[in-house]
Amino acid sequence: MAKVPVQFTLNGSETAEFVDSGTTLLHTLRDKIGDTSPKGGCHQGTCGACSVIIDGELRLSCLTLAETCDGAVISTTSGLSENGILHPLQRAFLDTFATQCGFCTPGMIMAAKVLLDHTPNPSRDEVVEALSGNICRCTGYEPIIQAVLTAARSNSQNAA
């Protein structure tokens, strides 16, 4: 089968890959490029573990075809820390014990990042709404919500 060339920016780096037509972005990122931070929990768009940011919007990489991402700017959780310094969201997830098994964590952080990028000081309800597409089966939702609110506070303190 003829391969389709795809080129996009992944966590600030120019990336190119040849994919089979119909290949998902999740498969391309994990098995071709080697960025395994997005996770495959359901492969049907219901669990949110594969969430990534494409051109500033939250997307499910398991339902996104790689060939539709040509020219896109893509961010994943693995690219969030800079020079070994954790992003405020990563710091907050760590400090508030917002991880248990860790499988949903990268997707949760992506969903939270898009929220804070658009809404720097969200209400609790806005946090709940923003995370509503991400399932945590360890059911640690409360510390996750607190982590996002904590990160928002630390962002606004840094800005002040």
Partner: peptide
């Protein structure tokens, strides 16, 4: 006490079995 596995979880570096190919 910080959990020893959390830094891997928040950076996406924790290696689950399916992360090996």
């Amino acid at each position: 006490r910080p959990r020893s596995d959390s830094p891997g979880h928040v950076t996406g570096k924790t290696a689950f079995f399916a992360d090996r190919t």
